[in-house]
Simulated assay, not measured.
Amino acid sequence: MIIRYERNGKVKHGWMVQEENKVRVIEGDIYKVESAKPIMTGLELPLDEVSLLAPCTPSKIVCIGLNYKDHAEEIGKELPAEPLMFLKPSTTVIGPGEPIVYPKLTENLHYEGELAVVIKKEARRIKAEEADDYILGFTCAIDVTARDLQWRDGQWTRAKGFDTFCPLGPAIASKLDYNDLRIVTRVNGEIRQDSNTNQMVFTVPQLLEAITAVMTLLPGDVVLTGTPSGVGELQPGDEVSVTIEGIGTLSARVNKEE
């Protein structure tokens, strides 16, 4: 699995070998394809000697609302006829273990555990059957939402756009059966969401076709594919985690804004 890490003030990509607690250092651009593929240097580092960062640095995060059947049923909404899209700014992104800041402007902060798609190369007006060629891999995400602001504004930019509102990580898994993955969200160790990506209304390829009909996705951009049932509130001091089969666990603690 691909990670992005910091060591001695330098940021690099690596290949995480969890069973050996090692990182194999990668040189070059992980988004380059064919003749310009990144190379393994042969250098290995102990995993505990590096600090994990968000595994990518997207120019934008494209999010999909109401994309799980169990979540739609939970809130009493009809299934959408087409994907419901919204954006989170790049400044919302944080990495594993970094704190989510509970802003003073909200009194109702919510978690939404999600499968995130990381884009490999520029994608514009692609077809669903081509989608896999444009995917670098998958990671865990938490779509943090100021729910009271969402309802008050009637649109979602402010509620979804605060700094720290998009934890990503811990790594990018490059080969997964994304149509059948268990996704579990816990708050302080208690399971709050427990579902499967087979509950998605629109599949990953369908989402990429719909999104790229509207906007160009760039290497490193991220698509959040929606959240299952069980969304709920967070309080300062809570620890929230999302575990996705084949990827791992992303955790973050909630800190009150100073």
Score class of each variant (00 low, 15 high):
residue 2 I to W: 05
residue 3 I to L: 13
residue 7 R to M: 15
residue 8 N to A: 11
residue 10 K to F: 08
residue 12 K to D: 07
residue 12 K to H: 13
residue 13 H to A: 04
residue 25 V to Y: 06
residue 26 I to H: 06
residue 27 E to A: 12
residue 29 D to M: 09
residue 34 E to I: 15
residue 41 T to G: 12
residue 53 L to W: 05
residue 59 S to M: 09
residue 62 V to M: 08
residue 76 G to F: 00
residue 82 E to C: 03
residue 83 P to V: 00
residue 86 F to Y: 15
residue 87 L to P: 05
residue 87 L to K: 05
residue 87 L to T: 03
residue 88 K to D: 06
residue 88 K to R: 12
residue 94 I to G: 00
residue 95 G to W: 01
residue 96 P to Y: 03
residue 96 P to H: 08
residue 99 P to T: 03
residue 103 P to D: 06
residue 103 P to N: 04
residue 106 T to G: 05
residue 106 T to S: 13
residue 107 E to T: 14
residue 108 N to K: 15
residue 109 L to Y: 01
residue 119 I to E: 01
residue 123 A to L: 08
residue 125 R to L: 09
residue 125 R to M: 09
residue 126 I to S: 13
residue 129 E to L: 04
residue 132 D to A: 11
residue 133 D to Y: 10
residue 141 A to N: 07
residue 141 A to T: 01
residue 142 I to K: 00
residue 143 D to P: 09
residue 144 V to M: 09
residue 147 R to F: 10
residue 151 W to N: 11
residue 152 R to L: 12
residue 157 T to G: 08
residue 159 A to E: 12
residue 160 K to C: 06
residue 164 T to K: 03
residue 171 A to V: 08
residue 172 I to K: 03
residue 172 I to H: 06
residue 173 A to M: 10
residue 173 A to K: 06
residue 174 S to K: 14
residue 174 S to G: 11
residue 175 K to M: 10
residue 177 D to P: 12
residue 183 I to R: 01
residue 184 V to H: 04
residue 184 V to F: 04
residue 185 T to H: 01
residue 185 T to S: 14
residue 186 R to E: 02
residue 186 R to S: 01
residue 188 N to V: 00
residue 191 I to T: 14
residue 195 S to A: 11
residue 195 S to D: 02
residue 200 M to G: 02
residue 201 V to Y: 06
residue 201 V to G: 04
residue 201 V to L: 14
residue 204 V to L: 14
residue 205 P to R: 07
residue 214 V to N: 14
residue 219 P to N: 10
residue 219 P to R: 04
residue 223 V to E: 03
residue 223 V to P: 02
residue 228 P to I: 02
residue 230 G to A: 07
residue 237 G to R: 07
residue 239 E to T: 15
residue 239 E to W: 07
residue 239 E to K: 11
residue 244 I to A: 05
residue 245 E to Y: 01
residue 245 E to K: 05
residue 246 G to M: 06
residue 249 T to A: 08
residue 249 T to H: 05
residue 253 R to N: 09
residue 254 V to Q: 00
residue 256 K to N: 10
residue 258 E to S: 14
